[in-house]
Computed example of a mutant assay.
Amino acid sequence: MKIAVIGDLHYPALEDAYVAIEEDRKVFYETFMERFFSVPADLYISIGDLTNYGLKEELDDVYEMINRHNKPFVHVLGNHDVCALPRDEVLAITGQKRFHSISTDSATLAFIDTEREQDLENWGGTLDSAQLNWLEGVVEESEDKPLLVFAHHPVHGTTTNSEKHKLCIPADIPIWELLSKKHGMGLYVNGHNHFNSVTIKEQWNFLQLAAVLDEQAIRTIEISDSHISVDSVELNDFELQKRARIIGNAINHFQLNPDPLGLESDVKCLIPIPARTVPAGERV
């Protein structure tokens, strides 16, 4: 199974103040999304902040681009996606589920919602009791099969800057207590902090993606019987880079990252999958 993932896209509505970037916005986002969906994959995922403020115009526009490609697509909500509208309205527009899981022969995939709905003061993550109870069941039911969790916010104290206030799911929310019960290996994929990062904690690997306006790249995750391979498709397109800088410097609610986004080891890795336990009496 192969998965293509993008970080924070921040597609902006064309406000009056942004008229000068209309052509840049059109060319950049249409080109980037076309190249994203041209990467061969079984599933395409956005780990949130697909839009810059969650306006209906932004959601309609970006989903029009997505739907052109007729590919299986999952959008986990980011905090920017639920700024302007209530969560239920956003989900109605996008046709996405708030949280859910997919089980395949090779892995279990879980998609969670870590957002504080329409909270403009606290952009940190959270998980309500309904999701925590559900996630506990997913962890248990995955048994020793690899479990991949996709979320917008990182788990506290894992990836770059995830120990900081508003840049993680706070430590007092017991998501790590649930994840640590996992038998076998897990991979947790998030965005939010606009840095690439790969870290390991016990049986879990944590993968964080930079924002698309900072880095025009697509992460691929390929699952085989023996390992999970994480790689990066770098677009290396000067014209896209130029347009990304113009957009990033023009829009509100976003700031281009002035710092290095990470090392090569923060975008590529090979994660071994331990041999699965065969129950007594079951044939190998």
Rank of each mutant, 00 (worst) to 15 (best):
29 Y>C: 03
57 E>N: 03
215 E>I: 07
112 I>V: 09
215 E>C: 10
275 A>E: 08
88 D>I: 02
209 L>R: 06
213 L>Y: 06
89 E>Q: 13
66 I>S: 05
79 N>S: 13
64 E>S: 15
179 L>G: 05
223 I>K: 11
284 V>H: 12
245 R>E: 08
248 G>K: 01
81 D>S: 03
55 L>M: 04
177 E>G: 07
84 A>G: 03
217 A>Q: 14
219 R>G: 00
72 P>R: 12
144 D>V: 07
53 Y>P: 00
226 S>I: 06
224 S>L: 03
49 D>I: 04
102 I>H: 10
141 E>N: 11
145 K>N: 11
109 L>K: 12
177 E>L: 08
170 P>F: 00
271 I>P: 03
125 G>K: 12
101 S>R: 15
47 I>Y: 08
241 Q>V: 09
93 I>P: 02
52 N>P: 00
81 D>A: 04
212 V>T: 06
61 D>T: 01
30 E>D: 13
152 H>I: 01
134 W>G: 07
272 P>R: 12
114 T>V: 05
137 G>T: 09
104 T>F: 10
283 R>M: 15
260 P>D: 11
207 L>T: 00
18 Y>V: 02
43 L>G: 14
36 F>C: 10
83 C>T: 05
119 D>K: 10
35 R>D: 11
11 Y>P: 02
276 R>D: 00
245 R>M: 08
51 T>A: 07
281 G>D: 08
94 T>Q: 09
171 A>W: 01
95 G>D: 02
133 N>M: 05
264 E>H: 15
91 L>N: 04
110 A>F: 14
202 E>A: 11
257 N>E: 08
107 A>M: 15
49 D>S: 06
116 R>N: 08
87 R>F: 02
64 E>F: 11
115 E>G: 04
94 T>F: 12
11 Y>L: 09
16 D>A: 15
131 Q>I: 01
93 I>M: 10
52 N>G: 01
31 T>M: 07
194 H>D: 01
223 I>H: 07
224 S>E: 07
68 R>T: 07
54 G>K: 00
39 V>T: 14
138 V>P: 07
209 L>V: 01
144 D>Y: 09
253 H>Q: 10
249 N>H: 06
265 S>D: 14
169 I>K: 12
169 I>A: 06
34 E>I: 10
221 I>H: 03
249 N>S: 10
55 L>Q: 05
15 E>F: 15
77 L>Y: 03
138 V>E: 04
